[in-house]
Amino acid sequence: NQASVVANQLIPINTALTLVMMRSEVVTPVGIPADDIPRLVSMQVNRAVPLGTTLMPDMVKGYP
């Protein structure tokens, strides 16, 4: 099973992602692959992302 990117904390709308905000976890449904975490750094979320939420491609501005 492939690990996905999961919010490690509440991420407010328009926040630029940092490594501490994300963790990898095997979840269903599958979200953004954990391998993409380095690419996500400094990209902004377009909505508030609660703790434990799987990051989906449509939540991150400019992804992929």
Rank of each mutant, 00 (worst) to 15 (best):
M59K: 01
P33F: 08
N8R: 14
V60S: 01
V60P: 02
I32H: 01
V5Y: 02
M22H: 00
V49F: 02
P57S: 10
D36Q: 14
Q2I: 15
V26E: 08
N14Q: 09
V26T: 13
R39N: 14
P12S: 07
L51R: 13
M22I: 11
P64D: 14
V60R: 00
P50I: 07
L55K: 01
G31N: 00
S42T: 13
A3C: 06
Q2K: 13
V45P: 02
A48S: 13
V41C: 05
A16D: 09
V41K: 06
V30H: 14
N14V: 03
N8T: 14
V6L: 08
V60Y: 02
A16W: 12
E25W: 07
K61Y: 12
A3H: 11
P33A: 10
P33Q: 08
M56Y: 12
T28K: 15
R39E: 08
G62T: 06
M43S: 07
L40F: 02
T28E: 13
N8G: 10
P12A: 06
V45Y: 00
V30D: 15
T28N: 13
R47N: 08
T18C: 04
N1C: 04
V26G: 04
A34K: 12
L17C: 03
Q9G: 06
A3I: 12
P50G: 14
L51W: 14
P29R: 05
R47E: 14
A7G: 03
I11C: 03
V60I: 12
R47Q: 10
V5A: 09
T18M: 14
M43Q: 12
P29Q: 05
I32R: 01
L17G: 00
Q2D: 06
P12R: 06
N46F: 07
D35Y: 14
E25G: 12
M22L: 13
Y63T: 06
N8Y: 03
N46G: 07
P33L: 08
D36R: 13
P33G: 06
P12Y: 06
S4E: 01
V6C: 03
V26S: 09
A16S: 10
V30E: 08
M22K: 00
E25I: 07
N1S: 11
V41N: 04
T18P: 00
V5I: 12
I11S: 00
L19G: 06
V45G: 01
T15E: 07
N1G: 13
M43R: 09
D35G: 15
S42V: 03
K61V: 15
